[in-house]
């Protein structure tokens, strides 16, 4: 079976996120107030062939850790069923 998955990669808590901070600083100028803790990141969408959803997520988690993110500075979260 083929499963549609999504991996979100963001900088780890405690690692400076200059893009997120810059976006946050721009918000008041557009009239947005009360928006805090902006984090910028990357999203990857792909499909995985696997016998079941759990196996597909395990493959996605593995490739997220080994390629899509650098665990020294980034966290990766796998989301399933994004079709």
């Amino acid at each position: 079976m083929e499963f549609a998955l999504q991996v979100d990669v963001t900088l780890r808590e405690g690692i400076a996120d200059p893009a997120g901070a810059t976006i946050e600083r721009a918000l008041p100028a557009l009239g947005f107030s009360g928006v805090h803790r902006v984090r910028a990141g990357k999203t990857f969408l792909f499909t995985v062939e696997a016998p079941d959803a759990a196996a597909a997520r395990a493959i996605a988690a593995d490739l997220a850790a080994r390629l899509l993110s650098n665990p020294v500075i980034e966290d990766a979260r796998v989301r399933g069923d994004v079709s």
Binding site: P18, N70, V72
Partner: peptide, 17 residues
């Protein structure tokens, strides 16, 4: 070299972007 694990740590985007 850091990505390959031959040196520790990582290089992230400059603070001033």
């Amino acid at each position: 070299l850091t990505e390959a694990g031959l040196l520790p740590g990582a290089l992230r985007q400059n603070t001033g972007l």
